[in-house]
Computed example of a mutant assay.
Amino acid sequence: MTPDRLPHEKGFHVSWDQLHRDARALAWRLQGEAPDTGWRALVAITRGGMAPAMIVARELDIRMVDTISVKSYDHQTQGVARIIKSPDAGVVGDGAGVLIVDDLVDTGRTLDVVRAALPRAHIATVYAKPLGRDRVDTFVTEVSQDTWIFFPWDMALQYVEPYRGA
Rank of each mutant, 00 (worst) to 15 (best):
Q76P: 00
A96V: 02
Q158W: 14
G38M: 11
P3Q: 14
R135Q: 11
H122N: 07
K85V: 11
I149W: 06
A81G: 07
M54H: 09
A124N: 04
R109A: 01
D103R: 01
G97N: 08
L104Q: 01
A117P: 07
S144F: 15
P152R: 04
R40M: 05
I68E: 04
A156H: 14
S72N: 04
M54Q: 08
A25Q: 11
R58F: 13
G90K: 09
P119K: 08
W153V: 01
H122C: 12
Y163F: 15
G32M: 11
T67P: 00
A81Q: 07
A156F: 15
D112V: 03
S15E: 12
P119T: 07
A41F: 06
V126A: 06
L26E: 08
D61C: 14
L99C: 05
P162N: 13
W39E: 00
Q18Y: 03
D154P: 02
H8M: 08
L131T: 00
P3H: 11
L42P: 07
D146A: 13
A166E: 13
V143E: 00
L157G: 10
R21G: 03
A81N: 11
A34V: 09
A51N: 01
R47Q: 04
P35M: 09
R135D: 11
F150S: 02
E33W: 11
E142G: 02
D154R: 06
K85G: 14
Y163Q: 06
I55C: 02
D102V: 01
D36G: 12
V91L: 13
Q18S: 05
S72E: 12
V101R: 03
Q145Y: 10
T107H: 10
D146E: 15
T141M: 03
D36E: 15
A124Q: 09
L131E: 08
R40N: 04
V91P: 00
Q158E: 15
A44I: 03
V126E: 05
H122E: 03
P130G: 02
G132Q: 12
S15F: 11
G49E: 06
I45H: 08
A166M: 09
